[in-house]
Design a protein around this nucleic acid. Structure first.
Length: 573
RNA sequence: GCGCCCGUAGCUCAACCGGAUAGAGCAACGGCCUUCUAAGCCGUAGGUUACAGGUUCGAUUCCUGUCGGGUGCGCCA
């Protein structure tokens, strides 16, 4: 049970004891240090219901409130707040117990099977900044849920199907016939795509061949299919290089592209028809949804099959939803996809439920995120207006970090500085993204991100290296020695550590990694204050042992927390 | 036209089913390195939470309207 749950339970019991059993306890971390550690705000609402004086009711609640051995101080404040200060001994024990647990006390009681659809790049092109958010938000959520004990099934729903692959395979053949080194050309997927598109637009014969290749690909022509597979292999290799550099855990086993659902598309439409959900309209097969209105105020059309018989992503998304329910047996399915597809997913979810493709108790959630903007407030582009390749973005991050490391620590050898730069640079990019609320558009700014000061990944990494440095000089010590809290800075640090489980619960429930970032930033800040106020190595005996144990718990929580964001820590920087 | 999201300090962002004096970082100014890494710590200054109403003990949060921005809405994904 988390601290928050524990206190909520006790306050709720006290409220019940004074005659308001259904009143929410409304327990929250205290908004200010002078209000203690937690505050219960439920009394005011309850008093209203009972038409009683809130401060009087608060008094009764406090009399009934059993926090023996948990709180050292309980006070009424303001119009009826109950401020709770936790007992130092209790807090110390809580930190110790958590530190001894492999899940740091955050293991879940209710294990779920969670499908997470994320990254999902279009394999026709090279990965660009547009794929960054889905990839790292999804990766962070996957790590958090796994850490808590859930079973996570990653699904990389890559774009590996459609007309563009006819064009690309046709161009691949042409290059080979020219005797060009296609592997060389494919080294620059983006350039290859542009060149193919140019041929397609300019040469009618080529365009015809490309369309022919689409047909052949879809009818299972062996030669075109082999070309297509080769193309996908190369493209996936590019993705894997980016994943490796980013430290994202996706592998080929997680790839479940659009093409994987090909054989399911016709049956999906047939099933929809059988259930009477489909209407033919202007030659297309359409599901009309009363839940959504179109521009004329009529039920919105959701096309599942084009008039030429072709299927759309609306169809494959339905097939995927069914697969995740039937085959994967998911309890919860997360779609880490751009917020602009919000309406689309509402439609997918609605149709999937109406058709019985997913059971009523399976959670379907669109984990929407906003757009990455440039400093001009417009979608992030290169100076010339092109897309920014992810590989280039990461290279720049590492280079900028290298320059900074070199200026801060010129004595380190280059290999070490490169290594630090890699961890710091990549961490900074990821943290800058993950620390923002995912639903909002955010401005990508090198200067803010790589100032490496304040609320950035390097600040957190730096806090960790300071602890690591202490350990190097401490000699032998017991990381699990008894913690004895005496200083305010120790109390604040221990409290923060003890809140790790409830924080992770929030991240998992709301699929918001930025909660974890904010938490870790707070943790690092509280550690830094402790570091300034409480000498560790200079102290002696039990105090020294206790502070070393606090350091150990902090280091563990910082590295674990950053690890859940997909960010590494360093022993020195 | 309708739907969804947003508008918070000069800039970038927070604010946990409505809670106390709206918090951080950057930038600005002022302190702290014979003491565990100063990528740090402490302090000062900075706000009519776009605007106008409403709901209530209490509103950045909920409701209505206005203005401003973004995005989406039948055969791309």
């Amino acid at each position: 049970m988390t601290l928050h749950e524990l206190i909520s339970t006790r306050v709720a019991a006290a409220l019940a004891a004074v005659g308001v059993p259904d009143a929410p306890a409304a327990v929250a971390p205290a908004s200010r240090p002078e209000f203690g550690d937690y505050q219960a705000n439920g009394v005011m609402g309850a008093a209203k219901k009972l038409k009683q004086n809130p401060r009087e009711l608060a008094g009764k609640v406090i009399d009934a409130l059993d926090l023996a051995g948990i709180a050292s101080k309980i006070e009424i404040a303001g119009p009826g707040f109950i401020n709770i200060t936790l007992d130092d001994g209790f807090l110390a024990a809580q930190v110790a117990r958590q530190h001894g647990d492999v899940r740091l006390g955050a293991g879940t009681d209710v294990m779920q099977k969670v499908v997470i659809d994320y990254s999902s790049p279009n394999l026709a092109k090279e990965m660009h900044v547009g794929h960054l958010r889905s990839t790292i938000i999804g990766d962070a959520l996957a790590r958090v849920l796994r850490f808590m004990g859930h079973e996570v099934i990653a699904q990389n729903h890559v774009g590996d199907w459609g007309t563009q692959f006819g064009m690309l395979t046709a161009y691949l053949v042409e290059r080979e016939e020219d005797g060009s080194d296609d592997m060389l050309a494919l080294d620059d997927l983006e350039g290859f795509y542009r060149a193919a598109k140019l041929r397609f637009d300019e040469d009618e014969a080529f365009a015809t061949r490309a369309r022919d290749y689409v047909v052949k690909l879809q009818s299972g022509d062996v030669r075109v299919r082999a070309l297509w597979e080769r193309f996908l292999d190369i493209s996936l290799t590019h993705c894997e290089a980016v994943y490796a550099r980013l430290g994202v855990q996706l592998t080929r086993d997680d790839v479940m592209g659009e093409s994987a659902y090909n054989d399911d598309l016709a049956p999906v439409v047939a099933d929809l028809k059988a259930k009477g959900l489909v209407t033919e309209s202007e030659g297309a097969q359409v599901v009309f949804l009363d839940e959504f209105k179109n521009k004329d105020g009529e039920p919105q059309a959701y096309i599942v099959q084009k008039q030429d018989g072709g299927f759309l992503y609306s169809t494959s998304d339905l097939a995927a939803a069914r697969y995740r329910a039937d085959k994967l047996k998911a309890d919860r399915a997360l779609y880490v996809v751009d917020a602009r597809q919000g309406l689309h997913f509402q439609q997918v979810f609605t149709v999937a439920r109406k058709a019985g493709f997913v059971p009523a108790d399976m959670q379907l959630e669109h984990v929407a995120f906003g757009t990455m903007m440039g400093e001009d407030g417009k979608p992030f582009k290169t100076r010339s207006g092109g897309v920014v390749k992810l590989a280039e973005l990461l290279a720049e991050a590492e280079q900028r970090a290298f320059d900074l490391v070199s200026s801060k620590n010129p004595d380190l050898d280059e290999a070490t500085r490169r290594q630090i730069a890699r961890v710091v640079g990549i961490g900074a990019v990821k943290y800058a993204d993950l620390s923002k609320h995912r639903t909002s558009d955010y401005v990508f700014d090198w200067n803010t991100m790589l100032s490496f000061e304040g609320n950035t990944a390097p600040y957190l990494q730096y806090a960790y290296t300071r602890i690591a440095s202490i350990f190097r000089q401490a000699g032998e010590f017991d990381a699990h020695a008894a913690i004895r809290i005496t200083e305010p800075a120790e109390h604040q640090l221990a409290l923060q550590l003890a809140q790790f489980p409830e924080l992770l619960q929030q991240v998992a429930a709301d699929t918001c990694p930025h909660f974890l970032c904010a938490y870790l930033y707070q943790l690092a800040t509280k550690f830094s204050r402790f570091y300034e106020a409480c000498p560790v190595l200079k102290s002696e005996g039990d105090v020294r042992a206790s502070r070393l144990a606090l350091c150990a718990a902090t280091a563990k929580t910082l590295s674990t927390g950053l690890g859940l964001l997909g960010i590494e820590v360093l022993e020195a920087m």
